[in-house]
């Protein structure tokens, strides 16, 4: 039986080698090793805190915010400025229940299904803000990382997400956005 597993491994290695060769011959090969750092603004270290307090500290203490992260207040200011696309990385059901006005729903865990929506919503040279539930939610970071890999140059994360937005008392809207 060992020889079959050894043969199986050999088949996998040869097939992978063919794949690598085919990729090298493509007009636009995919980059095999990622050199950019994944976006990481979410925090899993601190215990659950009152979201109102967190929103306040974020708004007042920009120095403590991770790089590439914006607060609820900054997000609102950017949206009012108009030159930004905001992406909601949560599930469609959560988006339908309530989202930041003007947000486009791009659920991170189903990103390949939403590439068409993404491409029609935001050009790679536009400023984009991603958000999800709260400071402990990773989806906005992961969506921001994928956007950077796709060539989006100006990607920010509203790390406080939906919790901080509603705690700040800003406007929301409901519906699927269709």
């Amino acid at each position: 039986m060992v020889k079959y597993f050894a043969g199986g491994l050999a088949i996998i290695v040869v097939a992978a080698g063919i794949g690598l060769a085919q990729n090298a011959m493509r007009s636009r090969p995919i980059k095999l090793i990622q050199t950019i750092e994944p976006v990481s603004t979410a925090s899993h270290d601190s215990p659950a805190v009152d979201s109102t307090d967190t929103a306040k500290s974020d708004d007042s203490g920009e120095q403590s915010a991770p790089q590439g992260s914006v607060s609820a207040e900054q997000t609102l200011a950017l949206l009012q400025g108009g030159a930004v696309v905001i992406l909601d990385a949560r599930a469609p059901s959560a988006y339908a229940d309530g989202h930041i006005p003007g947000a486009i729903n791009i659920p991170y865990d189903k990103l390949p299904d939403y590439l068409d929506v993404l491409e029609t919503s935001a050009a790679p040279n536009e400023k984009v803000i991603c958000y999800c539930w709260s400071p402990t939610c990773d989806f906005s970071d992961q969506l921001a990382t994928e956007l950077k890999l796709m060539g989006y140059e100006n990607v920010l994360v509203f790390t406080g997400g939906w919790d901080h937005w509603t705690a700040a008392g800003y406007d929301t809207e409901k519906g699927t956005g269709e």
Binding site: G8, I11, I12, A15, G19, I30, L32, T35, T145
Partner: peptide, 22 residues
Amino acid sequence: PFSISNLFALCLAWAELGVGVL
């Protein structure tokens, strides 16, 4: 690991195809 996720995905896709064909 994030840095090799593209490499892994490419190899895995072709491994599935090769095994399937055989």
